[in-house]
């Protein structure tokens, strides 16, 4: 099956591959896997105290579509507020990359990774500041 140009572009020139310090209180880490294909994807977001995504890095072991989906979302989330970032759906990712139906799960993985990274950030924050403070600050 042929990959689309956008998938190949993100696969060959992946954006933002790498890691951020997972112990940094401002870094949220999302780690997700796809049991159907055995792919794993890690997405890390550096989030400012006012809830803006400053930086994003990913590492994906998977097919071209999984790599392209994660590369694309690192570009999309940068500069966004976490409220806007959680609204990114797999449909938008799949549409942008013109993923065929058998590769839709790759975009689902990327969406789940964003949500998991933000959840991790919020949980870390709640632990650090107490749940009430964390809730009011990210509102």
């Amino acid at each position: 099956m042929a990959y689309t140009d956008k998938v190949i572009e993100h696969f060959e020139h992946s954006r933002n591959v790498g890691t951020l310090d997972k112990d940094d209180p401002n870094v949220g880490t999302g780690l997700v896997g796809a049991p159907a294909c055995g792919d794993v994807m890690r997405l890390q977001l550096k989030i400012t105290d006012d809830g803006t995504i400053q930086d994003a890095k990913f590492k994906t072991f998977g097919c071209g579509s999984a790599i392209a989906s994660s590369s694309l979302v690192t570009e999309w989330v940068k500069g966004k507020s976490i409220e806007d970032a959680v609204k990114i759906t797999n449909k938008e990712i799949a549409k942008e990359l013109s993923l065929p139906p058998v590769k839709i799960h790759c975009s689902v993985l990327a969406e789940d990774a964003i949500k998991a990274a933000i959840k991790d950030f919020q949980e870390k924050r709640a632990k650090r500041l107490g749940p009430a403070a964390a809730a009011s600050e990210t509102r």
């Binding site: 049991p35 794993v40 590492k59 799960h105």
Partner: peptide, 26 residues
């Protein structure tokens, strides 16, 4: 049916397991 997309997608693997796999792949 773990071989179907939907059922497999619903399966949440423990985080420690995913960390282990990620570590081994790296």
């Amino acid at each position: 049916d773990l071989e179907s997309e939907q059922a497999a997608a619903k399966l949440q693997m423990p985080l420690e397991f995913l960390e282990e796999i990620m570590g081994r792949r790296e």
